[in-house]
Amino acid sequence: MAQVTMTVNGKAATGDIEGRTLLSAFLRETLNLTGTHVGCDTSQCGACVVHVDGEAVKACTILAAEAAGTEVTTIEGMANADGSLNVIQQAFQDHHGLQCGFCTPGMVMSAAALLKENPKPSEAEVRDYLEGNICRCTGYHNIVKAIMAASGQDVAAVAAE
């Protein structure tokens, strides 16, 4: 067992873990931040995407020990300071960009990372960026719409319906 310390959602977080503990497990099991989900074991589904020092990272692809000393943001840290949904979260609700909710935390974290590097992505760019996030419920249609709406684009003008 070894002690690891990082900043998670703005607060210092410390835990005693085995060396093989993944960041996803550290967040879920040690810190009880169960919003980060694990949907596969081959780093394909993206349900576990978090931000590590501002970069989108699949939390199942790195060891917790590797994240020592970093600033980690999870879905629990994404709402506005007053607890209301942030602009991306609100767009997901407004455009029905989620159904069962399991892939949703990873989708929101990926969307935030995308909009940070590309504030007005085209539809093709959004779809391309979501290559590493699998959703089984929505068919992605409304997720793409929500992300474009969150970027301030008029999705009603884009969508045929």
Partner: peptide
């Protein structure tokens, strides 16, 4: 699994 870029774009999908 189907991913976001395997599905029809919004413009021609009703």
């Amino acid at each position: 699994m189907p991913r976001a870029d395997n599905l029809p774009e919004m413009t021609h999908y009703v």
